[in-house]
Design a protein around this nucleic acid. Structure first.
Lengths: 189, 189
DNA sequence: CGAACCATGTAATTGGTTACATGATTGT
DNA sequence: ACAATCATGTAACCAATTACATGGTTCG
Protein backbone atom coordinates (compact mmCIF):
# COMPACT_ATOMS: atom_id res chain seq x y z
CA UNK A 1 0.00 0.00 0.00
CA UNK A 2 2.78 2.43 0.86
CA UNK A 3 4.32 2.24 -2.57
CA UNK A 4 1.02 3.14 -4.20
CA UNK A 5 0.57 6.12 -1.94
CA UNK A 6 4.09 7.36 -2.45
CA UNK A 7 3.41 7.24 -6.20
CA UNK A 8 0.20 9.18 -5.69
CA UNK A 9 2.14 11.68 -3.61
CA UNK A 10 4.66 12.41 -6.34
CA UNK A 11 1.96 12.46 -9.00
CA UNK A 12 0.08 15.04 -6.92
CA UNK A 13 2.94 17.42 -7.79
CA UNK A 14 2.75 16.82 -11.53
CA UNK A 15 2.07 14.12 -14.14
CA UNK A 16 5.03 11.82 -14.72
CA UNK A 17 6.26 8.58 -16.22
CA UNK A 18 7.27 5.54 -14.18
CA UNK A 19 10.88 6.23 -14.97
CA UNK A 20 10.66 9.77 -13.66
CA UNK A 21 8.88 8.57 -10.54
CA UNK A 22 11.77 6.21 -9.88
CA UNK A 23 14.14 9.16 -10.07
CA UNK A 24 12.08 11.02 -7.52
CA UNK A 25 12.25 8.03 -5.21
CA UNK A 26 16.02 7.90 -5.60
CA UNK A 27 16.53 11.60 -5.09
CA UNK A 28 14.22 12.44 -2.25
CA UNK A 29 12.92 9.55 -0.16
CA UNK A 30 15.56 6.91 -0.76
CA UNK A 31 16.75 7.24 2.84
CA UNK A 32 13.48 5.85 4.20
CA UNK A 33 11.70 4.21 1.26
CA UNK A 34 12.78 2.83 -2.04
CA UNK A 35 11.11 1.11 -4.98
CA UNK A 36 12.28 -0.74 -8.07
CA UNK A 37 11.12 0.00 -11.57
CA UNK A 38 9.92 -3.58 -11.78
CA UNK A 39 7.61 -2.75 -8.90
CA UNK A 40 6.57 0.70 -10.09
CA UNK A 41 5.41 -0.19 -13.60
CA UNK A 42 2.87 -2.85 -12.60
CA UNK A 43 1.70 -0.66 -9.71
CA UNK A 44 0.92 2.18 -12.11
CA UNK A 45 -1.10 -0.11 -14.39
CA UNK A 46 -3.04 -1.43 -11.43
CA UNK A 47 -3.75 2.06 -10.14
CA UNK A 48 -4.92 3.11 -13.57
CA UNK A 49 -7.36 0.17 -13.61
CA UNK A 50 -8.60 1.27 -10.20
CA UNK A 51 -9.27 4.77 -11.51
CA UNK A 52 -6.66 6.50 -9.35
CA UNK A 53 -4.65 7.55 -12.40
CA UNK A 54 -5.08 8.25 -16.08
CA UNK A 55 -2.41 7.58 -18.66
CA UNK A 56 -1.43 9.24 -21.89
CA UNK A 57 1.10 7.93 -24.36
CA UNK A 58 3.67 10.34 -25.74
CA UNK A 59 4.99 8.92 -28.95
CA UNK A 60 8.74 8.94 -29.47
CA UNK A 61 10.62 7.66 -32.44
CA UNK A 62 13.99 6.57 -31.19
CA UNK A 63 13.03 5.29 -27.74
CA UNK A 64 10.06 3.51 -26.17
CA UNK A 65 6.95 5.68 -25.89
CA UNK A 66 6.61 7.60 -22.66
CA UNK A 67 3.56 6.72 -20.60
CA UNK A 68 2.65 9.81 -18.64
CA UNK A 69 0.43 9.18 -15.62
CA UNK A 70 -1.87 11.83 -14.13
CA UNK A 71 -3.57 11.59 -10.76
CA UNK A 72 -7.40 11.66 -10.82
CA UNK A 73 -9.77 13.18 -8.27
CA UNK A 74 -10.33 9.69 -6.90
CA UNK A 75 -6.55 9.37 -6.60
CA UNK A 76 -6.26 12.64 -4.69
CA UNK A 77 -9.00 11.54 -2.34
CA UNK A 78 -7.37 8.18 -1.72
CA UNK A 79 -4.07 9.94 -1.02
CA UNK A 80 -5.72 12.47 1.25
CA UNK A 81 -7.40 9.74 3.27
CA UNK A 82 -4.23 7.71 3.62
CA UNK A 83 -2.15 10.70 4.66
CA UNK A 84 -4.17 11.22 7.84
CA UNK A 85 -4.51 7.56 8.81
CA UNK A 86 -1.98 6.53 11.48
CA UNK A 87 -0.15 3.40 10.39
CA UNK A 88 0.58 0.56 12.78
CA UNK A 89 4.32 0.69 13.48
CA UNK A 90 6.15 -2.12 11.73
CA UNK A 91 8.06 -4.90 13.40
CA UNK A 92 11.75 -4.11 13.90
CA UNK A 93 13.91 -6.50 11.89
CA UNK A 94 17.64 -6.30 12.45
CA UNK A 95 19.15 -9.56 11.31
CA UNK A 96 22.66 -8.55 12.38
CA UNK A 97 21.43 -8.32 16.00
CA UNK A 98 20.72 -12.05 15.77
CA UNK A 99 24.42 -12.45 15.20
CA UNK A 100 25.23 -10.44 18.31
CA UNK A 101 22.64 -12.28 20.34
CA UNK A 102 24.10 -15.69 19.52
CA UNK A 103 27.75 -14.65 19.63
CA UNK A 104 28.54 -16.15 23.02
CA UNK A 105 30.78 -18.79 21.45
CA UNK A 106 32.53 -16.21 19.25
CA UNK A 107 35.64 -14.47 20.47
CA UNK A 108 35.44 -10.82 21.47
CA UNK A 109 37.51 -9.94 18.42
CA UNK A 110 35.06 -11.65 16.11
CA UNK A 111 32.21 -9.66 17.60
CA UNK A 112 34.24 -6.47 17.30
CA UNK A 113 34.77 -7.17 13.60
CA UNK A 114 31.05 -7.48 13.03
CA UNK A 115 30.42 -4.21 14.82
CA UNK A 116 33.14 -2.43 12.91
CA UNK A 117 31.77 -3.62 9.59
CA UNK A 118 28.42 -2.24 10.55
CA UNK A 119 29.96 1.03 11.67
CA UNK A 120 31.51 1.51 8.25
CA UNK A 121 28.17 0.95 6.58
CA UNK A 122 26.38 3.34 8.93
CA UNK A 123 29.03 6.05 8.50
CA UNK A 124 28.66 5.81 4.74
CA UNK A 125 24.91 6.18 4.94
CA UNK A 126 25.13 9.07 7.33
CA UNK A 127 27.49 10.80 4.93
CA UNK A 128 25.04 10.38 2.06
CA UNK A 129 22.32 11.98 4.18
CA UNK A 130 24.51 14.87 5.25
CA UNK A 131 25.85 15.67 1.79
CA UNK A 132 23.81 14.42 -1.16
CA UNK A 133 20.31 14.53 0.26
CA UNK A 134 20.98 17.76 2.14
CA UNK A 135 22.20 19.35 -1.09
CA UNK A 136 19.06 18.24 -2.90
CA UNK A 137 16.89 19.81 -0.20
CA UNK A 138 18.83 23.06 -0.20
CA UNK A 139 18.60 23.29 -3.95
CA UNK A 140 14.89 22.64 -3.80
CA UNK A 141 14.35 25.18 -1.04
CA UNK A 142 16.06 27.87 -3.11
CA UNK A 143 13.15 27.74 -5.55
CA UNK A 144 10.51 29.55 -3.53
CA UNK A 145 6.89 28.46 -3.21
CA UNK A 146 7.79 25.10 -1.81
CA UNK A 147 9.08 26.10 1.63
CA UNK A 148 6.56 23.99 3.48
CA UNK A 149 7.40 20.97 1.39
CA UNK A 150 11.12 21.60 1.83
CA UNK A 151 10.74 21.79 5.58
CA UNK A 152 8.87 18.51 5.69
CA UNK A 153 11.53 16.96 3.52
CA UNK A 154 14.16 18.31 5.90
CA UNK A 155 12.27 16.77 8.79
CA UNK A 156 12.46 13.33 7.20
CA UNK A 157 16.15 13.81 6.51
CA UNK A 158 16.75 14.79 10.12
CA UNK A 159 15.07 11.55 11.07
CA UNK A 160 17.56 9.66 8.94
CA UNK A 161 20.49 11.56 10.41
CA UNK A 162 19.29 11.00 13.97
CA UNK A 163 18.81 7.32 13.18
CA UNK A 164 22.32 6.80 11.85
CA UNK A 165 23.86 8.87 14.61
CA UNK A 166 22.15 6.68 17.18
CA UNK A 167 23.40 3.60 15.41
CA UNK A 168 26.95 4.91 15.50
CA UNK A 169 26.74 6.00 19.12
CA UNK A 170 25.39 2.60 20.10
CA UNK A 171 28.05 0.81 18.08
CA UNK A 172 30.84 2.88 19.63
CA UNK A 173 29.58 2.18 23.11
CA UNK A 174 29.02 -1.51 22.37
CA UNK A 175 32.49 -1.84 20.92
CA UNK A 176 33.99 -0.70 24.22
CA UNK A 177 31.69 -3.01 26.12
CA UNK A 178 32.50 -6.07 24.04
CA UNK A 179 36.24 -5.45 24.32
CA UNK A 180 35.83 -5.73 28.09
CA UNK A 181 33.70 -8.88 28.06
CA UNK A 182 35.38 -11.78 29.86
CA UNK A 183 36.52 -14.13 27.11
CA UNK A 184 34.76 -17.44 26.56
CA UNK A 185 35.65 -20.02 29.18
CA UNK A 186 35.27 -23.09 26.95
CA UNK A 187 37.37 -22.42 23.82
CA UNK A 188 35.79 -22.85 20.43
CA UNK A 189 35.06 -26.51 19.58
CA UNK B 1 18.07 -16.92 5.81
CA UNK B 2 18.00 -15.05 9.11
CA UNK B 3 15.07 -17.04 10.41
CA UNK B 4 16.92 -20.30 9.78
CA UNK B 5 19.97 -19.08 11.62
CA UNK B 6 18.00 -17.80 14.56
CA UNK B 7 16.43 -21.25 14.82
CA UNK B 8 19.87 -22.85 14.69
CA UNK B 9 20.98 -20.42 17.39
CA UNK B 10 18.26 -21.44 19.80
CA UNK B 11 18.70 -25.11 18.98
CA UNK B 12 22.40 -24.76 19.76
CA UNK B 13 21.31 -24.30 23.39
CA UNK B 14 19.16 -27.40 23.49
CA UNK B 15 16.82 -29.57 21.39
CA UNK B 16 13.33 -28.12 21.10
CA UNK B 17 10.00 -28.25 19.31
CA UNK B 18 8.78 -25.58 16.92
CA UNK B 19 6.32 -24.41 19.50
CA UNK B 20 9.03 -23.93 22.09
CA UNK B 21 11.21 -22.12 19.58
CA UNK B 22 8.39 -19.69 18.97
CA UNK B 23 8.26 -18.99 22.69
CA UNK B 24 11.96 -18.24 22.71
CA UNK B 25 11.49 -15.80 19.86
CA UNK B 26 8.69 -14.10 21.76
CA UNK B 27 10.57 -13.94 25.03
CA UNK B 28 14.04 -12.91 24.00
CA UNK B 29 14.46 -11.47 20.52
CA UNK B 30 11.00 -10.18 19.79
CA UNK B 31 12.25 -6.60 19.99
CA UNK B 32 14.40 -7.02 16.87
CA UNK B 33 13.19 -10.17 15.15
CA UNK B 34 10.01 -12.15 15.18
CA UNK B 35 8.66 -15.24 13.45
CA UNK B 36 5.30 -16.91 13.12
CA UNK B 37 4.64 -20.56 13.79
CA UNK B 38 3.46 -20.86 10.20
CA UNK B 39 6.96 -19.83 9.18
CA UNK B 40 8.84 -21.87 11.76
CA UNK B 41 7.29 -25.28 11.05
CA UNK B 42 8.11 -25.43 7.33
CA UNK B 43 11.56 -23.95 8.02
CA UNK B 44 12.32 -26.78 10.44
CA UNK B 45 11.26 -29.43 7.91
CA UNK B 46 13.42 -27.81 5.25
CA UNK B 47 16.41 -27.63 7.56
CA UNK B 48 15.96 -31.25 8.48
CA UNK B 49 16.01 -32.17 4.77
CA UNK B 50 19.20 -30.15 4.42
CA UNK B 51 20.80 -32.11 7.23
CA UNK B 52 21.10 -29.17 9.61
CA UNK B 53 18.73 -30.77 12.10
CA UNK B 54 17.45 -34.16 13.15
CA UNK B 55 13.97 -34.79 14.45
CA UNK B 56 12.49 -37.17 16.97
CA UNK B 57 8.82 -37.68 17.64
CA UNK B 58 7.65 -37.79 21.24
CA UNK B 59 4.33 -39.53 21.30
CA UNK B 60 1.57 -38.00 23.37
CA UNK B 61 -1.93 -39.30 23.81
CA UNK B 62 -4.11 -36.30 24.40
CA UNK B 63 -2.30 -33.72 22.21
CA UNK B 64 -0.44 -33.74 18.90
CA UNK B 65 2.93 -35.50 19.07
CA UNK B 66 5.86 -33.26 19.88
CA UNK B 67 8.52 -33.08 17.19
CA UNK B 68 11.79 -32.37 18.93
CA UNK B 69 14.53 -30.96 16.69
CA UNK B 70 18.24 -31.34 17.44
CA UNK B 71 21.01 -29.43 15.72
CA UNK B 72 23.56 -31.54 13.81
CA UNK B 73 27.28 -30.89 13.38
CA UNK B 74 26.52 -29.54 9.92
CA UNK B 75 23.99 -27.23 11.54
CA UNK B 76 26.54 -25.97 14.06
CA UNK B 77 29.02 -25.32 11.29
CA UNK B 78 26.48 -23.45 9.20
CA UNK B 79 25.56 -21.34 12.24
CA UNK B 80 29.19 -20.70 13.07
CA UNK B 81 29.95 -19.54 9.54
CA UNK B 82 26.92 -17.26 9.40
CA UNK B 83 27.65 -15.70 12.78
CA UNK B 84 30.93 -14.20 11.56
CA UNK B 85 29.71 -13.06 8.15
CA UNK B 86 28.86 -9.33 8.08
CA UNK B 87 25.40 -8.82 6.62
CA UNK B 88 24.64 -6.04 4.16
CA UNK B 89 22.58 -3.46 6.05
CA UNK B 90 18.96 -3.55 4.99
CA UNK B 91 17.05 -0.74 3.32
CA UNK B 92 15.28 1.51 5.81
CA UNK B 93 11.50 1.32 5.34
CA UNK B 94 9.42 3.74 7.33
CA UNK B 95 6.06 4.08 5.62
CA UNK B 96 4.82 6.70 8.08
CA UNK B 97 7.63 9.04 6.94
CA UNK B 98 6.00 8.99 3.51
CA UNK B 99 3.01 10.54 5.21
CA UNK B 100 5.16 13.28 6.73
CA UNK B 101 6.96 13.87 3.46
CA UNK B 102 3.72 14.45 1.53
CA UNK B 103 1.90 16.34 4.28
CA UNK B 104 2.33 19.80 2.79
CA UNK B 105 -1.40 20.05 2.06
CA UNK B 106 -2.33 18.80 5.53
CA UNK B 107 -2.85 21.21 8.39
CA UNK B 108 -0.23 21.42 11.10
CA UNK B 109 -2.74 19.86 13.49
CA UNK B 110 -3.21 16.88 11.23
CA UNK B 111 0.53 16.32 11.13
CA UNK B 112 0.73 16.70 14.89
CA UNK B 113 -1.91 14.00 15.30
CA UNK B 114 0.12 11.58 13.22
CA UNK B 115 3.22 12.27 15.27
CA UNK B 116 1.35 11.89 18.53
CA UNK B 117 -0.08 8.55 17.46
CA UNK B 118 3.40 7.37 16.69
CA UNK B 119 4.69 8.66 20.00
CA UNK B 120 2.13 6.58 21.85
CA UNK B 121 3.20 3.48 19.97
CA UNK B 122 6.89 4.14 20.59
CA UNK B 123 6.35 4.82 24.29
CA UNK B 124 4.50 1.52 24.61
CA UNK B 125 7.33 -0.37 22.96
CA UNK B 126 9.96 1.34 25.01
CA UNK B 127 8.05 0.35 28.13
CA UNK B 128 7.98 -3.29 27.05
CA UNK B 129 11.76 -3.21 26.57
CA UNK B 130 12.39 -1.55 29.93
CA UNK B 131 10.11 -3.82 31.92
CA UNK B 132 9.27 -7.20 30.40
CA UNK B 133 12.41 -7.91 28.42
CA UNK B 134 14.66 -6.45 31.10
CA UNK B 135 12.99 -8.68 33.66
CA UNK B 136 13.57 -11.71 31.45
CA UNK B 137 17.26 -10.86 31.13
CA UNK B 138 17.69 -10.29 34.85
CA UNK B 139 16.01 -13.56 35.64
CA UNK B 140 18.23 -15.35 33.14
CA UNK B 141 21.39 -13.69 34.47
CA UNK B 142 20.54 -14.87 37.98
CA UNK B 143 21.14 -18.43 36.85
CA UNK B 144 24.92 -18.41 36.64
CA UNK B 145 26.98 -19.91 33.84
CA UNK B 146 25.36 -17.81 31.16
CA UNK B 147 26.81 -14.38 31.99
CA UNK B 148 28.32 -13.90 28.57
CA UNK B 149 25.05 -14.78 26.87
CA UNK B 150 23.14 -12.52 29.26
CA UNK B 151 25.43 -9.62 28.51
CA UNK B 152 24.99 -10.04 24.77
CA UNK B 153 21.26 -10.22 25.26
CA UNK B 154 21.47 -7.02 27.33
CA UNK B 155 23.40 -5.41 24.50
CA UNK B 156 20.62 -6.14 22.02
CA UNK B 157 18.06 -4.82 24.48
CA UNK B 158 20.06 -1.63 24.92
CA UNK B 159 19.95 -1.28 21.15
CA UNK B 160 16.17 -1.45 21.28
CA UNK B 161 15.98 1.05 24.11
CA UNK B 162 18.32 3.48 22.33
CA UNK B 163 16.29 3.08 19.17
CA UNK B 164 12.97 3.91 20.80
CA UNK B 165 14.48 6.74 22.82
CA UNK B 166 15.78 8.30 19.62
CA UNK B 167 12.39 7.92 18.03
CA UNK B 168 10.77 9.69 20.95
CA UNK B 169 13.36 12.45 21.05
CA UNK B 170 12.96 13.04 17.33
CA UNK B 171 9.19 13.00 17.61
CA UNK B 172 9.22 15.50 20.49
CA UNK B 173 11.48 17.83 18.59
CA UNK B 174 9.52 17.45 15.36
CA UNK B 175 6.27 18.11 17.16
CA UNK B 176 7.57 21.51 18.26
CA UNK B 177 8.87 22.20 14.79
CA UNK B 178 5.62 21.32 13.04
CA UNK B 179 3.57 23.46 15.43
CA UNK B 180 5.64 26.44 14.28
CA UNK B 181 5.37 25.73 10.56
CA UNK B 182 3.63 28.54 8.66
CA UNK B 183 0.17 27.17 7.83
CA UNK B 184 -0.71 26.23 4.29
CA UNK B 185 -1.38 29.27 2.10
CA UNK B 186 -3.90 27.62 -0.21
CA UNK B 187 -6.58 26.06 2.04
CA UNK B 188 -7.44 22.43 1.49
CA UNK B 189 -9.28 21.84 -1.80
C1' DC C 1 -18.59 -20.35 29.43
C1' DG C 2 -14.90 -18.51 27.08
C1' DA C 3 -9.99 -17.56 26.69
C1' DA C 4 -5.43 -19.19 26.78
C1' DC C 5 -2.25 -23.04 26.42
C1' DC C 6 -0.37 -26.91 24.01
C1' DA C 7 0.88 -28.65 19.33
C1' DT C 8 0.82 -29.36 14.67
C1' DG C 9 0.44 -27.85 10.08
C1' DT C 10 -1.34 -25.98 4.91
C1' DA C 11 -2.80 -22.47 1.64
C1' DA C 12 -3.35 -17.98 -0.02
C1' DT C 13 -1.83 -13.60 -0.42
C1' DT C 14 1.21 -9.61 -0.12
C1' DG C 15 5.29 -7.09 -1.00
C1' DG C 16 9.82 -6.87 -2.45
C1' DT C 17 14.18 -8.42 -4.98
C1' DT C 18 16.64 -10.29 -8.82
C1' DA C 19 17.04 -11.80 -13.31
C1' DC C 20 15.81 -11.45 -17.97
C1' DA C 21 14.62 -8.85 -22.35
C1' DT C 22 15.10 -4.87 -25.72
C1' DG C 23 17.47 -1.05 -27.87
C1' DA C 24 18.93 3.68 -29.43
C1' DT C 25 21.70 7.84 -27.72
C1' DT C 26 25.05 10.29 -25.25
C1' DG C 27 29.11 10.95 -22.63
C1' DT C 28 34.19 9.27 -20.97
C1' DA D 1 35.05 0.39 -26.58
C1' DC D 2 32.13 0.84 -22.38
C1' DA D 3 29.09 2.70 -19.21
C1' DA D 4 25.26 5.52 -18.29
C1' DT D 5 20.77 7.53 -19.59
C1' DC D 6 16.24 6.97 -21.33
C1' DA D 7 12.13 3.87 -21.32
C1' DT D 8 9.41 0.02 -21.07
C1' DG D 9 8.13 -4.23 -19.15
C1' DT D 10 7.73 -9.79 -17.59
C1' DA D 11 8.86 -13.78 -14.82
C1' DA D 12 10.81 -16.16 -11.11
C1' DC D 13 11.73 -16.21 -6.63
C1' DC D 14 11.83 -15.28 -1.58
C1' DA D 15 10.19 -13.92 2.94
C1' DA D 16 6.60 -12.72 5.80
C1' DT D 17 1.62 -12.20 7.03
C1' DT D 18 -3.02 -13.88 7.41
C1' DA D 19 -6.43 -17.18 7.17
C1' DC D 20 -7.87 -21.77 7.65
C1' DA D 21 -7.95 -26.39 10.02
C1' DT D 22 -7.93 -29.52 14.26
C1' DG D 23 -8.74 -30.53 19.10
C1' DG D 24 -8.09 -31.61 24.02
C1' DT D 25 -6.85 -29.27 28.73
C1' DT D 26 -6.63 -25.87 32.06
C1' DC D 27 -7.59 -21.47 34.23
C1' DG D 28 -10.43 -17.51 35.50
Amino acid sequence: MSLEHALLGFLSYSPMTGYELKQHFDQSIYHFWNANLSQIYPALSRMKEEGLLTMEVEHQEDRPNRKVYTITDAGREALQRWLVTPLPPGQVREAWLIQIFFAHFQSNDEIVSLLEARMDAMRARLAVCRTEIQAAIDQNAAQSGVERASQLWQITLDYGIAHYETQLAWLEQTLARVRKLPPLTPPKP
